[in-house]
Each structure stands twice: as C-alpha cells, then as structure tokens.
Computed example of a mutant assay.
Amino acid sequence: MVLERDYDFWLLDLDGTLVDVEWSYTREIFDHVGNRLGREFTDREAEIIWNGLTGSRDRQLEEWGVDPREFWAAFHEEEDPTVRAEQTFLHEDAEFVADLDVPVGLVTHCQEFLAEPVLDHVGIRDWFDARLCCTEETGWKPDPEPVQSVMNELGVGHNGHRGVLAGDGACDVGAAWNAGLDAVHVERVGHEQRGRCVLGDYRVRSFDELY
C-alpha cells in the first residue's frame, strides 16, 4: 500500500495515466494519417502506437516500414488541440492527485500544443507545481533527463528526497528507475491486450488500489 507520507514528491504521466481519449477520436486520427502516408492502420496498430504497447513507438513504426519522422509530422498536422481536448476524459481514480499535499510534477510525451488545452478542459492544471512536455531537446522517457528536470524545478533534485513516478507505460517505469525513483505502473489496457506484463515497484489497475 502506498501512502502519501511515504514520498516527498510525486511525478505523473498524462495520457493513459490521468486522462484518456475516446476511441472514435483515435480511430479518426489514424484514418487521416493513413491517408497522408498511403497506408492503412488497423485498429490493433492504432492501439499499439497510441498506447505505446510495445515500448518504443518509433521502433515499432520502423518495424512496420513506416518512417517515424513522416508519421509524427502527419500525426501532429492532423491533431486539432481543441477537438483533442473535447474528446479527453479524466480517470476517476486519478482524482487523488488533487489531494496530495507534497510537490507534484507532470512529465509527459504529449506535446505542449495538445497538453495545455487538455489540462484546461479536464480542469487539472492546478494539480501540478511543475510540468514538462518532452521534446528532442529535453529527451524522452525512459531517459532520466526530463524527470530530473522536473525534480529540479520542484526543488527536490539533489536533497535526498524520496519520490515516485506513476505512469501507464514501460517507459515511465524505466524513467523512474533511471532517475532513482520508485515506479507505479497503472495498467489501463490490460495485460492481455498489451501482450506482456510491465514490472514496477507497484502494479495496479486503478490508483484506488494504492490506498
């Protein structure tokens, strides 16, 4: 069982961890991207990339013969921040974050032009004392650099503070461990759909299991 007093600070992922989007939105985006690239994406392929089920999305795209740079360029051109936000919902079990009485940070692969409207739409902007949307410059999870950047902004980077990072992907667990933090893996899609189990210091299907 995880109690708030066990940790001096919390870090969290966004998509798939605190929020998710309606499947109809995901399906439509992949239809449009597929039209741009001249390649159809199946429901399973869309699910794998959207949720990062096989680890590195770029590596998975390359295995399918899709250039990651072309894919992401098309993907971001097709995404409308307003529509994305309107199709996003907050997981009820994530509401515990609002009650944390310790520094809280957000470390997400969701790009800033998409993340900011989502935070406003679901009303969770004020949950975080620091936020970082990963880029090529900041590095990507599981690299520890973006995590350490947020820790430094929170003032907990080098003072012996004990922290935890919670996310829905293997990259979140890797980033936590690489940065010297404990890791909570919340399994939103199910082990069967993922095709494997993701290890973590805590493995839950809902944050409600932590209390």
Rank of each mutant, 00 (worst) to 15 (best):
T138G: 05
H191E: 10
D208N: 14
G52P: 09
R27L: 13
E192P: 01
L12D: 00
D182C: 06
L14H: 00
E45A: 11
A130P: 03
R125N: 14
L100V: 09
H109C: 11
A166C: 09
A115S: 11
Q87I: 09
L61D: 12
G38A: 05
R162C: 04
R205G: 15
R194I: 01
S24M: 09
E112Q: 15
F41N: 03
A130Y: 01
V21N: 14
E116L: 12
E63Y: 06
E28R: 10
R36V: 08
S206M: 10
L90R: 08
T54P: 03
H76A: 10
T26N: 10
E145L: 10
G169F: 06
G52L: 12
V147W: 00
P144Q: 06
F113K: 13
R5S: 14
A130M: 03
D93G: 11
E77Y: 01
E137Q: 15
L37S: 05
G195Q: 01
V104P: 08
D31Y: 06
L181F: 07
S149W: 11
F75M: 14
T17Y: 03
F207Y: 13
P142Y: 02
I48H: 08
A179P: 02
T135W: 12
T17R: 04
D20S: 15
G34P: 03
D129C: 01
P146A: 08
G34M: 05
E92T: 13
H158T: 13
P142H: 00
H109A: 15
K141V: 06
T42V: 08
G34V: 03
V104R: 12
M151S: 04
R59D: 14
P146G: 06
C110A: 09
G180S: 06
T108A: 02
I48M: 12
E77T: 07
E70C: 04
E77P: 03
G190V: 00
G169Y: 08
M1H: 15
W127A: 03
G34Y: 04
F9D: 00
Q148T: 15
E192D: 14
E4C: 08
E63D: 11
R205D: 15
L165K: 06
W72R: 04
Q87P: 09
V19Q: 05
L11Y: 02
W177K: 07
A130N: 11
P103E: 07
V173S: 00
H185P: 09
R194A: 05
T135R: 09
A98L: 07
V2L: 13
E78R: 14
G195P: 01
E45P: 00
L154T: 10
V189I: 10
L61S: 05
N35F: 11
R194L: 03
E209Q: 13
T135F: 08
L132I: 04
I48N: 12
R131P: 00
G167N: 03
A46V: 06
R188D: 11
Y211Q: 14
G65P: 02
D168P: 06
D143I: 01
N159D: 15
V83L: 12
A179V: 03
D120V: 09
R188V: 06
S24Q: 12
A176M: 00
W10K: 04
E145I: 11
L11C: 04
S206N: 13
R125P: 07
L165Q: 08
V97Y: 07
D182R: 04
G167S: 03
P68N: 13
E209G: 07
R39T: 05
W23E: 14
C197D: 08
N159V: 12
